[in-house]
């Protein structure tokens, strides 16, 4: 049986206690929420910790609340340790941002969504089939750039790691322009979800040491009201699998039905959720039409760099960026689309 290595485990019930533990513990301390990412990584030993601090008993970090928002009407604030399944069950989330609900419902499998949290999904370690392997397997390739090794096996010669961002909520939250709150002792900063990420497989988060991601704020109702969303995801099976490609679309239409603003964000084709401004530009100022969508989909394809570090042929995944982007944008614009709804979203 694959087992965890030994570590110290703490379950503080307040943020203050958590900060104290983070500050006092040895250098190798990690936070854990649902554990669905950290525990497998620790069992395979590519993430290590002598001390693990769980956030799951900090009640203030759990739940979905309606807040006043910041001038954009009432908004939803989701605590970082809220279970993915509780988000899927939330009718408020589904009514405001149906595609966020759908993206969340597509993550892994039903029992895993009863354990995994939204904060955890945002902070999900970048993935790669050369990295998400056991200690023994990684020894057989002399490790890789992301951990102990010197070569990125996906692109030997590359100075950077190409592990990809496989979070489904991150591209969707970035598309709707959600923000996250990062707290450290005595400090609190709020940044956009988009600002949470670097495009680097190793240093993929902008969270500073000592900071805890405590909540995710969705845009207020005045924004949500005009926002049309879509989320399309490609993977082999309808459950369990991570995305090998996801397309998150958020469009804001004016009263006349013209696109005022658009965000097209791709998942699993870069080390971070990849916004495609060129795709967005192709839509802004347009009424829904297939020509504009196709231009935007081509832009999405040009922006994506799928690598050979997950399922399916890389070149084909590149083709699929265009197809899936087109389908997702069509859905958001209420245009008919050819691609049969994949059985797996």
């Amino acid at each position: 049986m694959l087992r965890l290595p030994a570590f110290e485990f703490h379950q503080p019930s307040t943020l203050e206690e958590a900060f104290a533990l983070l500050g006092s513990a040895a250098p190798s301390v990690r936070l854990v929420a649902g554990g669905t990412d950290l525990w497998p990584n620790m069992k395979r030993r590519h993430q290590k910790a002598e001390t693990v601090v769980s956030l799951m008993k900090i009640d203030e970090l759990r739940g979905i609340q309606t807040t006043n928002g910041n001038g954009n009407g009432p908004s939803l604030s989701i605590g970082a340790i809220t279970l993915l399944d509780d988000i899927v069950r939330s009718s408020e989330v589904r009514e405001r941002f149906p595609a966020l609900s759908r993206a969340t419902a597509s993550i892994s499998s039903p029992p895993l969504r009863n354990m995994a949290t939204l904060g955890g999904n945002l902070c999900l370690d970048t993935r790669c089939t050369y990295y998400n392997q056991t200690e023994e397997w990684r020894r057989s390739i002399d490790y890789c750039l992301k951990e102990e090794g010197t070569v990125c096996w996906v692109a030997p010669g590359s100075p950077t790691c190409w592990a990809h961002s496989a979070s489904d909520t991150a591209p969707m939250l970035a598309a709707i322009e959600a923000t996250v709150v990062l707290q450290s002792p005595g400090e609190l900063r709020e940044i956009s979800v988009s600002e949470l990420f670097h495009n680097d497989g190793i240093e993929y988060l902008t969270i500073q040491p000592g900071e805890v991601l405590t909540r995710i704020d969705l845009p207020g109702s005045s924004s949500a009201k005009h926002c049309r969303t879509a989320f399309w995801k490609l993977r082999r099976r309808g459950s369990i699998d991570f995305a090998v490609l996801s397309v998150a679309v958020a469009l804001w239409l004016d009263g006349a039905g013209t696109v005022e603003k658009a965000n097209i964000v791709l998942g699993a084709v870069a080390s971070r959720p990849l916004a495609v401004p060129n795709a967005a530009r192709a839509l802004v100022g347009q009424k829904p039409n297939i020509g504009a969508v196709r231009n935007a989909a081509r832009a999405a394809r040009r922006a994506a760099t799928p690598m050979d570090n997950t399922d399916f042929k890389t070149q084909w995944r590149g083709l699929m960026v265009e197809r899936y982007a087109e389908a997702a944008m069509c859905e958001a614009m209420d245009l008919p689309h050819q691609l049969p709804s994949p059985p797996h979203v």
Binding site: W137, R237, G238, S239, D241, D311, P343
Partner: peptide, 13 residues
């Protein structure tokens, strides 16, 4: 060599 990446059909397939 894992259940995740060796693709075995689920109920849905």
């Amino acid at each position: 060599p894992s259940m995740l990446e060796y693709k075995s059909p689920t109920f849905l397939e």
